[in-house]
Amino acid sequence: MASILMVIEAKIATTYLVEQIMRACGLHGVDYEVKFLNELRIDDVTPNTIPMFVRCGDPLVLSWAQLLVDANRSYIYYIDDNFWRIRGESPLAVYYRHPLIRKALQFAVSHAETVIVNSPELATFVSRFNTRVAILPAFFDFSLIEGVAQSASEEIRIGFAGSPSRIDDLDLIAPLIEPVLERFPKTIFEFAGVLPRGIAAGTRVRFFPHTGDYATYIRFQASRNWAIGLAPLLDHEANRGKTDNKYREYGACRIAGIYSNIPPYRNVVIDNETGLLIENTKELWLNAIENLISSPGTRKNIGNSAFNHVDEIYNLQKVALEWARLFQSIDMSRQKFTKQLGRGGFGWRKTLRKLQRYAIYIHISYIEGGIYLVARRIAKKLLVIA
């Protein structure tokens, strides 16, 4: 049985999803355990264990990757975003542009036995650091939305849910809201997690706070009974390397989706059958929204076709078999003549990485809110320790 040690920095949607696939892999001879990077100990990494770092860019991952390389131990790196190409000045973008984060990320990716990605575009980019890249399919767990009651209403709800980092993509949608509301009295826009710039919540524009719990988030989305789901993506390298999560979610919920005509959606959406693929212009997006509002039959057909397509190719149990086969292959082929993980000097190296991590967080906090925010976050941390 392959034994995978899943190492994460924090509980986020991605780690929740990867843990779902790991759980499903148990039926195919794969065992797993989850550890936080900052709590990882040398004794956790036994000779039979294969660590898998999930989206880890913290300086601590550099120490662990160096330790594993020195001991001739195989490890896996999973990545679902192009962190080298994130645009803007958000805390996330600033974090991944920091030289120490770039150094840790690049070393960990470069020396992995296998780098797992979900998109061909990201695979092409990552291969400049490591040619041992495996493209594995993403999935949807239909059990998450079983028994979810949909909100009954005559409203025509148009929805989008995402993190605040998606605000730039919503610039495509913001100019369309007012004309749609004026022409179609029954329409309502609903945004969860982020509002477009210049748009205020009100009677016909609803805002719901972001939730970090993926199961709660997807059940909320299923319950809102959206007639149309929006999936705008600005055309740049970081977005082209993303997964097609909006298509999986909308399809599973039988929502007729409108998608920017770029990868990842261009790779999977069947235009006018399982969704609408639209070039990123105001006129084309407005036409697409208005056409779907005016055609309930088309919305229903697209929603049903998308559901059938997602169920066919993204079903969790089917996808888990492909992931399990990769883990078993790595387990069979990995180097058996490994060294004991060296402890000498590792403690000092970890301490140095922790200090570097704190320096990075202080730097980002200062950019966000100046010395006041730095002081507030330090005080909050001290209160937690106390």
Rank of each mutant, 00 (worst) to 15 (best):
Ala375Trp: 11
Trp226Arg: 04
Arg204Pro: 01
Asp235Phe: 09
Ala108Arg: 05
Glu279Ser: 10
Trp226Pro: 06
Ile385Pro: 03
Ala379Gly: 05
Ile330Phe: 02
Lys242Ser: 04
Leu181Met: 00
Ser119Tyr: 04
Ile79Trp: 02
Thr131Phe: 03
Pro59Arg: 06
Gln317Ile: 12
Met332Arg: 15
Gln356His: 13
Pro185Tyr: 02
Lys103Trp: 01
Gly370Ile: 12
Glu190Val: 14
Ser110Cys: 07
Leu170Tyr: 03
Pro99Glu: 02
Arg266Gln: 02
Ile385Asp: 12
Thr49Met: 14
Phe140Ala: 06
Arg102Asn: 03
Gln328Tyr: 04
Val18Ser: 07
Thr124Ser: 13
Val30Thr: 10
Ala200Glu: 13
Asn308Val: 09
Asp169Tyr: 06
Glu146Lys: 15
Arg166Cys: 13
Tyr77Cys: 00
Ser90Thr: 15
Asp213Val: 13
Val133Met: 09
Pro185Asp: 03
Ala231Phe: 06
Leu195Glu: 01
Arg219Glu: 04
Val180Asp: 07
Arg132Met: 00
Ala288Gly: 13
Leu321Ser: 11
Gly57Pro: 02
Trp226Tyr: 14
Phe346Asp: 07
Leu92Ala: 14
Leu172Glu: 07
Leu62Ala: 04
Leu144Ser: 08
Gly198Tyr: 09
Asn272Gly: 09
Arg132Asp: 01
Arg97Val: 07
Phe83Val: 13
Tyr250Cys: 11
Lys282Gly: 05
Ala359Gly: 12
Thr281Met: 02
Leu176Trp: 11
Met6Ile: 12
Phe53Gln: 03
Thr274Ser: 11
Val310Cys: 07
Gln356Trp: 11
Gly345Pro: 08
Ile258Phe: 06
